[in-house]
Amino acid sequence: MSNKKRFSLLLVCMMALVMVLGACSTTKTNPSGGSAESNTAAQLDQIKQRGKLIVGVKYDTKLFGLKDPGSGKVEGFDVDMAHALAKSILGDESKVELKEVTSKTRIPMLNNGDVDMVIATMTITDARKKEVDFSDVYFQAGQSLLVKKGSPIQGIEDVTADTTILAAKGATSIDNIEEKVPGVKVLEFDNYQDAFNALKAGQGEALTTDDAILYGMAAQDPNYEVVGKPFTDEPYGIAVKKGQTGLVEAINKGLTDMKADGSYDELYKKWIGKAPESK
């Protein structure tokens, strides 16, 4: 009898907890709304005061942000971009602190103030624009497919509802492929490396994400190749906390300067191996 009582007490406590949390949500809507609006340069000021840029990048994505297990250094296009922006904003390209983000954590980390900006192969979408602000496009990618050499899949037109597609969690690539091939089976993994391992183990027929990342994987293992033409436009943007237009402007100025003085093309060539297609 007393046991039953204790159990119901526990349930009541749980309910109460939910209520309290629910109540919090009504009092604390949109933290960046009211106060931040008045100071759109708060984040930029904070960066200058600190004298250091805290940037969220990926640690698991070849060519863009990859941690070398030997040296412990994180290297890639996104990392070099962070240093270039530090030079533009703070005048010293070494004033950068990197933090690891994943597709899953990058927006929460940004909103929590753990990082000033996220440079992490992040596609600009309308849904994301509701959560964060984006800079101008800093890299033009397109979604494509990675398959084992000799695969019958040679492009998006070969993907059917019976195909198993592997992808990374929280990426727009999942929505895209589901839109192109309704009913396709998609298996989501924590990161690209896990998805690639699953592809190698034959757990799916093709891995999909932005071609820039796929080329990095194909470079890792010559048994795999990128097939077909990119079937989406994936403009990568640098994300900052919503409302921090001052910081967005500073980033855009840095990007414009880099494109003007040729250092952007240099960077592109260093990692992707060819010059960017002019649009």
Binding site: K104, L166, K169, G170, A171, I174, E188, F189, A198, Q203
Partner: peptide, 15 residues
């Protein structure tokens, strides 16, 4: 391992 369990969908919902 993309086992389609509760946590898998939680991640996906979060994304």
């Amino acid at each position: 391992v993309a086992g389609l369990d509760l946590m898998y969908f939680a991640d996906s919902i979060n994304g």
